[in-house]
């Protein structure tokens, strides 16, 4: 990846991170740790991979994104707003009564949200159906399913993952945001999901691994997954840092994962993010 391209993605990721901090800060709730870990993956996906038309969110031939770890919706909302699906001012109503942006995504309310969610463990199954539908219509769209590592404890994930390789020449690419944390602590201590590569391989998925905060690495993993897309499903295991970019969240000092954000913490996070990147971001009065 060229330096300029990487810089551009890093700039976008910074804006998205700041928006996540602002929206959870204003709402005083929302899953910040799980959202910040996902940012770089979503930025790469939405700016470099997806065939979408933000001005025509229901374009039938679009690629689909199923956010299975839907508690990380602040990240999705910030990406969709910055990608032009709706006005950024909607972000400041996150979780409010009547808001377009619900605490967990409600597809009928939000342009750009392609699938229902809120109850984890359902993404691969929905992706299977979406892929079948595009196959019936002869469309070339691809389905990207964003999973969390904690949610892989749900049995329904594996029911669906077992089916995907038999669905024909579909194009399903799953990404696991491996931030290592779940509601009550480290995933490995609560219910160990490893060895994950072997699990997916034994379910006949192609497995790629990446540093989920390194755009060059993500580029390589996506390239591999897309190259293999005609042969069967792929999964990218992306190692990430929970709360990436905000020291309190990274250190787990906010309490995982639904961190009680407030104005003070929001300002601290914004200062940290600004200074880490030389303070290029624009100020925002909320």
């Amino acid at each position: 990846m060229k330096t300029a391209e990487r810089r551009e993605l890093e700039g976008l990721a910074l804006e998205v991170r700041k928006d996540i901090v602002r929206m959870t800060g204003v709402a005083r709730s929302g899953n910040i740790g799980s959202s910040l870990s996902l940012v770089d993956i979503l930025v790469y996906l939405y700016w470099k991979v997806l065939r979408i038309r933000p001005e025509e969110p229901h374009w039938p031939a679009r690629d689909r994104v199923v956010l299975s770890k839907s508690h990380a919706c602040p990240a999705l909302y910030a990406v969709l707003a910055n990608r032009g699906f709706f006005d950024r001012s909607e972000l400041w109503n996150f979780r409010r009564l009547g808001a377009m942006l619900q605490g967990h995504p409600e597809m009928v309310r939000t342009p750009g949200v392609d699938a229902p969610g809120g109850s984890v463990g359902m993404g691969i199954g929905i992706a299977n159906g979406l892929m079948l539908a595009s196959g019936f219509d002869g469309l070339d769209s691809r389905v990207f399913c964003i999973l969390g590592d904690g949610e892989l404890q749900e049995g329904s994930i594996w029911e669906s993952a077992m089916k995907t390789p038999d669905l024909g020449s579909g194009k399903i690419i799953a990404l696991v945001d491996m931030n290592g944390m779940q509601m009550n602590g480290p995933v490995k201590d609560i219910r160990n999901i490893e060895p994950l590569r072997e699990k997916f391989e034994s379910f006949r998925w192609t497995v790629a691994e990446a540093d989920g905060h390194d755009f060059d690495d993500l580029e390589g993993a996506f390239a591999l997954a897309l190259k293999r897309a005609d042969e069967g499903p792929s999964v990218i295991l992306a190692r990430t840092v929970p709360g990436k970019g905000f020291s309190l969240a990274e250190k787990g000092l906010l309490g995982y994962p639904s961190s009680p954000m407030n104005r003070e913490r929001m300002e601290q996070a914004l200062r940290e993010m600004e200074s880490a990147t030389g303070g290029t971001g624009k100020g925002e009065d909320l």
Binding site: P60, R64, D114, A115, P116, M122, I124, G125, I126, A127, N128, G129, L130, M131, L132, A133, S134, F136, D137, G155, S156, E159, S160, K163
Partner: peptide, 14 residues
């Protein structure tokens, strides 16, 4: 469970 999720995906795909 997978059957219902698949059905939902099909419905989303028209």
């Amino acid at each position: 469970q997978d059957m219902i999720m698949t059905a939902a995906g099909l419905a989303l795909g028209g």
